[in-house]
Amino acid sequence: ILLLFGCVSGIKPRPKFTAIIHAVTPLVSQSQPILKLLVAVAKSQYCVQVIILWNCDKPLPAKHRWPATAVPVLVIDGESKVMSSRFLPYDTIPTDAVLSLDEDTVLSTTEVDFAFTVWKSFPERIVGYPARSHFWDSNKERWGYTSKWTNDYSMVLTGAAIYHRYYHYLYTSYLPASLRGLVDQLSNCEDILMNFLVSAVTKLPPIKVTQKKQYKETMMVQTSRASRWADPDHFAQRQSCMNKFASWFGSMPLVHSNMRLDPVLFKDQVSILRKKYKDIERL
């Protein structure tokens, strides 16, 4: 993988990103989180295009249901509608940077801009907001997964993260069909698998930006499809995935870090007018 990845390392990334929003619930209200997210992302000075990956089993919404934006919005009707399809190497991605988003992610335009600014300095890594960690459970003699708020982390979830589009090619072409099939069967763990892949390539941890404990919209849309995060088996599945992935990689590739990058003067007791990303502190 390291030889293949040579095309990424040492090359200055193009100064824009393409956002991919993974949609799995039907559009029934103009107040749904996905529409708020679309507007916020499209306002970013670095965004060139937003792709809505429609992995919902309901028909595509009419064009007028989507808000008007300053950048093009492309809706792709996923044929297989499986979780791994969010990491396909779509020809419609014109930029090096991909901003990967879940439909119920809560991010402001300022937060998007800051994350992308950080990513430009670390284009080989995953850069984003929701952090998670792994640990060795000596009692069970297996790897564990935790979402507890701690001082370190080893994963940044792809529900709100930026990474190089080359990882789409590695995810699709290098990883075995058995691992991708497990992800698709469970509709879970795709973010963990992507973190395993990136850390295996770089031998480095991802990068978390700014303190943000909540990145999911709490308002539940009234649909017949419940959120996968509400599934009681969701956490157990992720524990199992950790060990199956580690087994295939032959070791644990994830690397711990306690570094968090914040804007200059973040939370400093100075005038808010002196801060470039001042809106972040008001969230």
Rank of each mutant, 00 (worst) to 15 (best):
F5S: 11
C7T: 10
G10A: 14
R14H: 14
P15M: 09
F17E: 03
I20N: 04
V24D: 07
L35T: 11
V39S: 11
A40P: 00
V41I: 15
K43H: 13
Q45N: 03
V48S: 13
I51C: 09
C56R: 06
K63Q: 15
V75Q: 07
V82Q: 14
F87L: 11
I93G: 02
I93W: 00
A97K: 02
A97S: 05
A97C: 13
D104R: 00
T105Q: 05
L107C: 11
E111F: 01
V112E: 01
V112G: 02
D113Q: 05
F114D: 01
A115R: 01
F122D: 02
R125W: 03
G128P: 00
A131T: 06
W136A: 03
Y145S: 03
S147R: 13
S147G: 07
K148P: 01
K148N: 12
T150C: 12
N151P: 06
D152M: 05
T158C: 14
T158N: 10
A161R: 03
A161V: 05
I162P: 03
Y167G: 03
Y167R: 02
Y171R: 07
P176W: 11
G181K: 10
L182M: 15
D184Q: 10
Q185E: 13
C189G: 06
D191L: 01
L193Q: 07
L193E: 06
V198I: 11
V198Y: 05
V198H: 05
V201M: 08
K203F: 07
P205W: 02
K213I: 10
Q222L: 10
S224E: 14
R228S: 15
W229Y: 11
H234P: 00
A236D: 10
Q237G: 10
Q239V: 00
C241N: 04
C241Q: 04
M242G: 01
K244S: 14
S247N: 15
G250H: 08
L254W: 01
L254R: 01
D268Q: 10
D268K: 07
S271H: 12
R274I: 06
K275S: 12
D279Q: 10
L283Q: 12
